[in-house]
């Protein structure tokens, strides 16, 4: 093979190649870290408030902690109830944050103020209360273990990847609908300014060791999309989020 060598010193070539590789890695790395920064939680993480009290469940003593959430028909309604978010437009949403941080091995009490209406569940299974202490939730002062599937507005369904590195955690809590006839002509999604207190749902569960879990709503509320599970349901930070136990 006869080739005509063009004069470039080999050291110059080497430097050029090394610089190119470093630049290449830097470019890919920059894009990667940009995506990483875009992956940040849309809202600041919400930490559970630890209390000094303890409680005994099934013979074991747990420290207590609590956390409060709201479910709103859209960001306007969220703002009206004091949970102003920068979230977009008309998406139904949990607030003030969808990233919850809970202490490990703790009796966590969650209070959800729920202000939305609803139709019926895709899968009636999620009308059942699962994984709470006592198997019940408290709706406006009444303990129930089940909400009929046509009376649910949203659910809080917490789950994770079963793994040897973290304890299993599965909680399903159905939230009852705010009905149009609860108050004259009240339609939650269209008139957020109505002075209506919604439903207050309280439940407790016990966290295991540290781990990463997710939660999402199982009520189809991504309007306009197939099975109503697109839009708000499939966009991270509205009807789905993370739960970090640590």
């Amino acid at each position: 093979m006869e080739t005509t060598t063009v004069e470039t010193s080999s050291s110059k070539r080497l430097i050029s190649a090394l610089v190119f590789v470093v630049l290449g890695v830097a470019v890919v790395g920059t894009v990667g870290f940009t995506l990483h920064s875009l992956s940040a939680d849309p809202q600041k993480a919400l930490y559970a408030t630890k209390s000094s009290e303890t409680i005994v469940v099934d013979g074991k003593t747990y420290p207590k902690a609590s956390i409060a959430l709201g479910v709103y028909a859209d960001s306007g309604q969220a703002a009206d109830y004091g949970h102003y978010t920068t979230n977009k437009k008309d998406y139904v949403q949990y607030g003030p944050s969808t990233h919850l941080v809970l202490p490990a091995h703790t009796f966590v009490t969650v209070t959800i103020s729920a202000y939305d209406g609803g139709e019926h569940l895709n899968n009636p299974y999620f009308g059942k209360v699962v994984g709470t202490v006592g198997g019940t939730i408290n709706i406006d002062g009444v303990d129930v273990s089940n909400v009929p599937s046509d009376n649910v507005q949203h659910t809080f369904t917490l789950h994770g990847i079963p793994s040897s590195s973290q304890d299993p955690l599965f909680v399903n809590v159905p939230l009852p609908q705010v009905k149009a006839d609860d108050q004259d002509n009240f339609i939650a999604t269209q008139d957020p300014k109505t002075n209506f207190k919604g439903h207050t749902v309280t439940f407790s569960f016990i966290t295991g060791g540290a781990g990463d879990y997710v939660w999402n709503c199982e009520y189809p509320c991504g309007d306009g999309s197939y099975a109503k599970f697109g839009a708000a349901m499939s966009t991270y930070g509205y009807m789905s989020g993370k739960v970090t136990v640590k």
Binding site: H159, F170, N216
Partner: peptide, 21 residues
């Protein structure tokens, strides 16, 4: 076995129970 977006549920019709496991 019912798949819902992102959770499995299992119904034992003859036994009359439902479970996530």
């Amino acid at each position: 076995v019912t798949g819902s977006q992102w959770v499995w549920s299992f119904k034992y019709a003859d036994q009359g129970i439902e479970s996530d496991k």
